[in-house]
């Protein structure tokens, strides 16, 4: 039987209350959202907090709203709400792609975007998606709010720059013209973590790629996006030769490890192939030419 080590439990009723609770409890205190990564880690004693602050009642952090220039997503928004949101699918189909392959529908009823990003698992999909989309994340602490680019959120595997006493409250995605995006994942079986996955976003202007985002999951591109691949895409007319070049650079820049999900050389090959596919689909979507079959 897997049971977590002992801890004390608090339930926050508002963001300010959560901040107060964080302040009054020691550094071994963690926020509990969906719990579908944290509780399994606690059962295995990979995490052993002394106190959990349950933030599931903070409904003010459960929202998806657009203010024209950006889509704002509350940190407590469940995977399922993201998967089913038409607004999300319209602006950022990469999110819908990813949500369809994150765990399974029952897990998606509980898991949250903020929890996923703060877990900072190198195989987690939404971190790649948010990096690819140039997201910003809003972090609130006792002294107010700060906003940082998504690529600065993770310090490394399972480590973020959210300090003790702070709470990630919101994800902001810039809405820009000419956009298309896609996520491609290969897993051993339905619902598993990725062997490798790639996210791509393109912003087209007058037939050329004005800007591009390329991200990889589970293959050792721990921080940020594949910047050399993105650079290779900028200013070019989209096409398979350009995509292949970006894919080659992204595959070169990642650093997969051999494990039970496959050998490193296979994962590197897969990473490149998935970048190509994601770029193709992202571009087709930007041009309104995606095949519906």
């Amino acid at each position: 039987m897997q049971i977590p080590a002992e801890f004390s439990y608090e339930r926050a009723t508002s963001i300010d209350h959560a901040l107060e609770l964080l302040k009054s409890h020691g550094p071994e205190t963690l926020l509990l959202a969906g719990g579908h990564s944290l509780l399994p880690m606690m059962k295995l004693r990979l995490a052993r907090p002394e106190c959990l602050i349950d933030i599931n009642d903070l409904h003010e952090l459960d929202f998806i709203s657009s203010d024209g220039d950006r889509l704002r997503i509350g940190a407590l928004t469940r995977h399922r709400a993201l998967a089913e949101s038409e607004e999300v699918a319209r602006h950022f189909p990469i999110i819908t792609d990813a949500e369809r392959v994150i765990a399974d529908p029952v897990v998606r009823n509980r898991g949250t975007i903020g929890g996923s990003l703060c877990q900072a698992d190198p195989a987690e999909d939404l971190s790649t998606v948010c990096g690819t989309l140039r997201a910003e994340v809003v972090i609130r602490g006792p002294d107010g709010e700060r906003t940082i680019p998504m690529v600065e959120l993770h310090r490394g595997p399972y480590e973020t720059t959210v300090a003790h006493g702070e709470i990630l409250t919101e994800i902001r995605l810039p809405i820009r013209p000419g956009a298309g995006s896609a996520y491609e994942k290969v897993e051993r079986r339905v619902g598993d973590w990725a062997i490798a996955a790639a996210g791509a976003a393109v912003w087209l202007d007058d037939g050329r790629i004005a800007d591009a985002g390329v991200g990889l999951t589970a293959v050792g591109l721990d921080r940020g996006t594949a910047t050399r691949a993105e650079e290779a895409l900028r200013g070019r007319a989209p096409g398979d030769d350009v995509f292949a070049e970006a894919a080659r650079l992204a595959a070169e820049d990642c650093d997969p490890v051999s494990d039970q999900r496959g050998p490193a050389d296979y994962k590197r090959h897969l990473a490149g192939e998935l970048v190509t596919r994601a770029l193709r689909r992202a571009t087709a979507r930007a041009l309104g030419q995606e095949s519906t079959t």
Binding site: G35, V106, V107, R110
Partner: peptide
């Protein structure tokens, strides 16, 4: 016990959840 198999599913507020991963 790892939220994979789903035999522990119950409804919480009408939605299925894996009760081995909910306190």
């Amino acid at each position: 016990d790892t939220s994979n198999c789903g035999v522990c599913v119950v409804l919480m507020d009408g939605e299925p959840v894996k009760s081995c991963t909910v306190l």
